[in-house]
């Protein structure tokens, strides 16, 4: 039990729980291979993004970029927006989110409930339209502050200063850290910290691989790699398809009772891959992975029930991570 002065102070410090049923069985006499889940859904708004939102706002305050009553502008369609909306409310800022015009109504409702204003950008025109639109709006409103999570060092630093130390404290024998690759903040920050402290640590990225529709860019040059990304922090990077992500998400709740979103299923898939490799090679492994958020926001996809093929169809072209 713990007591905090405010909700903001209750960010981080999440439990790390063992997964004895999902961890692979090793032959008699072989070194143990264990899986550990870091329950980031236990943060104030229910996702790992609370850590980054809090650090980015604090960094802007300390740099004098943000003063009470200021407006924060951020391109986001998901958890970062919800986290920023909560932090902005409690710290006395107005938040304007730029998001594609066809995101789910659950997200829009959640953001508005937390007090955010929303500007919709055209969903067509490449994956980075919301980012581009936000940058244009920022140019028109030079007094609005754009934290820009893809290039904000405080995003990665949040994990360098909190997620990494928490993991090492709770699991000094950690051999692998597995997380999702989005803004890359979680992997860059936690990965750098663990590389400094743990010899031979493996930092493993899991990125979602969506259906055909999602990659409908017109030109390779329209791609985008976040400014935060530094490939030298990673040891390996896996691409995980919808079917595997759904399978693992269901397995996690069925076998270990952890109800998570689909991005966590993708992360678990990569974690199991490295765990089984360790078993095959007869090496000891303590594999810690991130449960990025709970499953509540994704129930309306219908992908938690029915056959895997049904779920795959339900998520085709949808935003599941």
């Amino acid at each position: 039990m713990a007591r905090y002065d405010s909700l903001l102070d209750a960010s981080g410090g999440t439990p790390l729980v063992g997964l004895p049923r999902l961890s692979p069985t090793v032959p008699d006499g072989a070194p143990p291979v264990r899986l550990w889940a870091k329950l980031e859904d236990r943060n104030p708004t229910g996702s790992i993004k609370d850590r980054a939102a809090l650090f980015m706002v604090r960094a802007a305050e300390e740099a004098g970029r943000l003063r009470p009553g200021d407006t924060i502008l951020e391109p986001t369609s998901g958890n970062t927006g919800i986290s920023l909306a909560m932090v902005a409310k409690l710290r006395g800022y107005r938040l304007v989110c730029v998001m594609p015009e066809n995101v789910s109504t659950e997200r829009v409702q959640l953001l508005r409930m937390y007090g955010a204003e929303i500007i919709f950008s055209p969903a067509a025109g490449g994956s980075n339209q919301a980012v581009a639109t936000a940058k244009e709006i920022a140019a028109e409103h030079p007094d609005w502050v754009m934290l820009f999570q893809y290039g904000n060092e405080a995003n990665a630093r949040a994990h360098y200063e909190t997620t990494g130390p928490e993991l090492l404290h709770d699991l000094p024998t950690i051999t692998h850290f597995v997380a999702g690759l989005g803004t890359t903040g979680t992997l860059m920050g936690t990965g750098r910290y663990l590389r400094e402290k743990v010899d031979g640590i493996q930092v493993v990225a899991a990125e979602p691989r969506y259906g055909e529709l999602v990659y409908g860019l017109r030109n390779i040059d329209e791609g985008y790699v976040p400014e935060l990304y530094d490939a030298t922090v990673l040891s390996r990077r896996f691409s995980v398809g919808t079917r595997d992500a759904v399978l693992r998400t269901r397995q996690l709740v069925e076998v270990e009772g952890i109800f998570a979103g689909f991005s966590t299923g993708a992360i678990l898939h990569a974690a199991l891959a490295v765990a089984h490799e360790a078993v095959r090679d007869g090496r000891r492994a303590d594999v810690a992975f991130v449960v990025a958020d709970g499953g509540w926001k994704y129930l309306s996809t219908g992908a938690y029930g029915g056959t895997l093929a049904d779920a795959e169809d339900a998520l085709e072209g949808q935003l599941w991570a």
């Binding site: 369609s77 969903a123 067509a124 980075n128 529709l213 409908g216 860019l217």
Partner: peptide
Amino acid sequence: LPAVAGGAFGFAAAAAIAQHSAAAA
């Protein structure tokens, strides 16, 4: 695969869906 917003797939997914509508085009 093209590198899509380094995993900012939320936008990518939404963009893809919209590309199927004439209005979005």
